[in-house]
Write a protein that binds this DNA or RNA. Structure first.
Lengths: 203, 203
DNA sequence: AAATATAATGAACAGTGTTTAGTAAAGTCA
DNA sequence: TGACTTTACTAAACACTGTTCATTATATTT
């Protein structure tokens, strides 16, 4: 009988419509306006209906985080496949920061918001995308080390150094702290700082 | 006539009591529970009264940010006066990160929250404490450069590199992203990453 | 004591996430 | 087709949030 299958499909469709509208609200109105009621209005259902498709708001934000990682991975494009490890790191770093500066709402959900992590804890699951990205960075740092492009040390320390810096730069910009200490702060200052870091880590 | 002076004094006292209770709530219950109503209950006045002493909540959070800077400066202690610029940077960096990890609520208000910056915009004022700290860092980097302890370059880039990294580390820890990618993440991993950065910038 | 100036508040507004009891619709079977 | 069951949905409520404003209470001055 195809009825229960159709029902399953319809259920899936509404679930995806909720996420689609949530995404639109996030982009157009920001995280502050991403409320259950606003999503409900957008999909033309009552707020309570959303709870038949998602356990809570954390789960919706978690799904948005996954969408964000998809978007970022897409934008990073072929940077992952560059043969030279240092160039790989450079291009990934630039792409990461550019993504963060151009999509602060996405970035915030992916790397700052507590909701997705809360959801992972509730499900006892791992942060797949994050782990994947960090592990790739660690192994790329290891590649660079094998080629004597950087000092011998725990590659996780180099990876964390890199990640912290780009994360810090994006957040200092997003929180308006950078423009408070550097009036003529622009993307170039951030780019040059990144380059300064790369020059200092690799050779 | 001393009456208007006494009134002024009483007004100041209640204002400070509000901030004192706000601070207590922030420490004991976190930023999420720092609501006007909770403060009102704590000072045994109605919520509306608070608006006779502060323009809005942003102003209260701004004042807490200033308190936080006082607290941090205190904890950094004599690190500012170390004669060796690199040692100065090392100790300030360690103090900064330790403060951030031990006082996430304070740190968040000081370096992440939008409210204090919103307040500064409304008053058309500058971020005094932040500028002071960053400028000190820039000039310390300059000192190190004069002593040939680091490559010749714009000291602002080195300062921003340092700040971004420690800011990134504190935020990755605070947002639980670090423990998601490194199960046995502890303060030592962060400390070693900082040391790795210092080894790579200075000599 | 009456008039005035200051201080404080109750109640409301428009919002938030979430739960629950009850209703409407759809599917099943005689 | 009509009765029964299962599924889908929602109105209303709860306990919150920041903020404003008309009204009341208190303190000071005349």
């Amino acid at each position: 009988m195809g009825i229960s299958e159709r029902r399953e499909r319809e259920k899936q469709e509404l679930r995806e419509k909720i996420l689609e509208k949530a995404k639109e609200i996030l982009i157009r109105e920001g995280q502050d306006n991403l409320s259950i009621r606003n999503i409900a209005t957008a999909i033309e259902y009552s707020p309570a209906t959303i709870y038949l498709y998602f356990k809570d708001k954390d789960e919706i934000v978690y799904e948005l985080m996954e969408m964000g990682f998809g978007k970022m991975t897409e934008e990073l494009g072929d940077a992952f496949e560059l043969p030279d490890p240092v160039e790989r790191i450079r291009r990934i770093g630039q792409g990461y920061v550019t993504f963060g500066l151009k999509n602060p709402e996405w970035y915030d959900i992916m790397f700052n918001a507590p909701q997705p992590i809360q959801h992972l804890h509730k499900c006892q699951e791992e942060w797949g995308y994050g782990i994947q990205l960090f592990d790739f960075l660690v192994s790329t740092c290891d590649d660079a080390m094998q080629q004597n492009r950087t000092r011998k040390q725990d590659p996780r320390l180099v990876a964390l150094h890199l990640w912290s810096t780009v994360h810090g730069l994006v957040n200092l910009s997003r929180s308006q702290r950078l423009e408070m200490v550097e009036q003529n702060h622009n993307d170039s200052l951030i780019q040059r700082t990144m380059e300064s870091m790369l020059q200092c880590i690799f050779n």
